[in-house]
């Protein structure tokens, strides 16, 4: 039986997905203010780590990391609507890459599982 991460294409798919996903996020007026780190490479590395996690790949994230990493954004007004937008872009990124709907749903579920930690509640 293959894992979700393997079905989605593993590390190679992540590289492709980061470009598509990050472009969507940067052009979405609802949320791009939270992604305005001028250091795009550092930002892209964060996206990569995030996608690896929600694709069910190897990652070291803990709930505590998620809380710490987003605290400053919550202070700037990060809320459920922004998390919804990110999950929406995740779904459309995966659809563009040809993932099947059941897998997209599973990725969204993993992302949703991090919601409370991300929003520090």
């Amino acid at each position: 039986m293959t894992t979700l991460y393997e079905r989605l294409g593993g590390a190679a798919a992540i590289d492709q997905a980061v470009d598509i996903f990050y472009r969507k996020v940067l052009t979405d007026e609802r949320i791009n203010g939270f992604f305005d780190d001028v250091d795009m490479e550092r930002q892209a590395n964060k996206q990569k780590a995030f996608l690896t996690m929600v694709f069910g790949g190897p990652n070291q994230y803990t709930g505590q990391d998620m809380r710490e990493g987003h605290k400053h954004l919550v202070a700037r007004g990060l809320n459920d609507s922004h998390v919804d937008a990110v999950i929406e872009h995740l779904g459309s990124t995966l659809a563009e890459l040809g993932a099947d709907p059941a897998d997209i749903e599973q990725v969204a579920a993993i992302a949703n599982g991090a919601r409370d930690d991300v929003l520090n509640r």
Partner: peptide, 8 residues
Amino acid sequence: FLAGARMD
């Protein structure tokens, strides 16, 4: 990047 270049 937004105009289509790959990040790498």
